[in-house]
Write a protein that binds this DNA or RNA. Sequence first.
DNA 1: CGACGCATTGACAGGGCTCAATTTAAGTGG
DNA 2: CCACTTAAATTGAGCCCTGTCAATGCGTCG
Lengths: 232, 232
Amino acid sequence: MIDNTQYLSIVQQSGLFNGVPENQHAIILNRGKVISFKPGELVFRSGDPARLCLFVLEGYLKHSMMHLQGKEAICRYLNPGDITAVSAVFGEKKFRSTAEAVGDVKLMGWDKATINELLLEYAPLAINLLHGTINLIHELQDRFLGLCAEQVEIRLANALLRIMKESGRKTSEGVLINFRFSRQELADYTGTTLYTVSRILSSWGKYGWIKSERERITIIDPLAITRLAESD
Amino acid sequence: MIDNTQYLSIVQQSGLFNGVPENQHAIILNRGKVISFKPGELVFRSGDPARLCLFVLEGYLKHSMMHLQGKEAICRYLNPGDITAVSAVFGEKKFRSTAEAVGDVKLMGWDKATINELLLEYAPLAINLLHGTINLIHELQDRFLGLCAEQVEIRLANALLRIMKESGRKTSEGVLINFRFSRQELADYTGTTLYTVSRILSSWGKYGWIKSERERITIIDPLAITRLAESD
DNA sequence: CGACGCATTGACAGGGCTCAATTTAAGTGG
DNA sequence: CCACTTAAATTGAGCCCTGTCAATGCGTCG
């Protein structure tokens, strides 16, 4: 007998079950399967058939797309409570992006047949999914606009502030971005190169705004960076 | 008595009603309201409260975002059969983008309360909407990746091909993109400037790939442009 | 300690943006 | 129907941001 009820609160908190009768929550949960991934493992890759609809229980996922000849673009980071691979709901879709575990990750997965039954049975579930994807569109559109209209330094400032808010940790010196985070990844996230990122970060380091170390950054003066991000 | 049944076939064709019992189609349709717009009119603008969920019956919409100090980015063009303003389904959202009528436009609009009732009553409707928004995400992600990884000429080629497929009209000379379409708009769509677009288009004109006129473009040699888009 | 991977920095070039000057085409009103 | 106005498009010149390439430095881990 499957028992996923230990994850009830995280799913409820995410809003996915809003509007679904409470006595059904555990039933829906138990029709899914929990899967674990180790740091760096691929959850799915571009080209794989989409078979499972996935909900992040613990850890972070990096969602990226690969361009011919290697250039990578990071679509977004998934946090606990986020859902992905919703394409699995529909026909014979293949993934167009790749998801990688950042740190240890636990996911809840519903297979195609199950998620389709669930959505038909619980309309609020479909509405909540819709809600999530709309938010995603907004986020993507914002970043799209940034890519069109802002230069690298501004985009980098925005990215760092966003990541700081979502995953930063306070220390005596400032806010530490604590998961492994290379220049390359920052570049892929902001649509530039690791060289440019490195140059900008070291200039910020000289101003005393940040402390830049190997795969970690401490933000000392968030205000200065915010000012920069909002300058135009 | 409202009677929108003249629009039945266009909505059915779009797939929005897939899975909904056929005898309900007209009923759903008649709970919406048809609205018309003249060329250039704004359907909604950034900051307006989202009150109606909109389905394009006739004509085209341009969906764009404005950056501080005027730089504009075009998120996408909406064709007959597309749906937008789905945010209206949820809470007190405000639009973050602007939609403008390109040519004469007829829309079907359902107000917030109605669309919420409909989605709860007809789960397939919510699933179909979800389907549409997922496709949108894929499209946006593709263009996001393009912006990160491709140079302007390639992006422009892809954009032109995409628009050609969606809204082109065959003529004796080639495929005409028939709605008013300035260099500025192509620039806003591909994330560049009208000068760069102009230069590229006139070079393509010299190769005989396209015929470039004021606010209209005829694609004479789609293959050449496809080759360019897929080069490297 | 040596090796590997990440990060930094410099030199250089070029794609594409900016600005300005024309040219071309579409309206408009007399 | 033509002169006039206005907006779109073209084109050239200059330059700056940012990507590319190469060399070097440094942290981490086996």
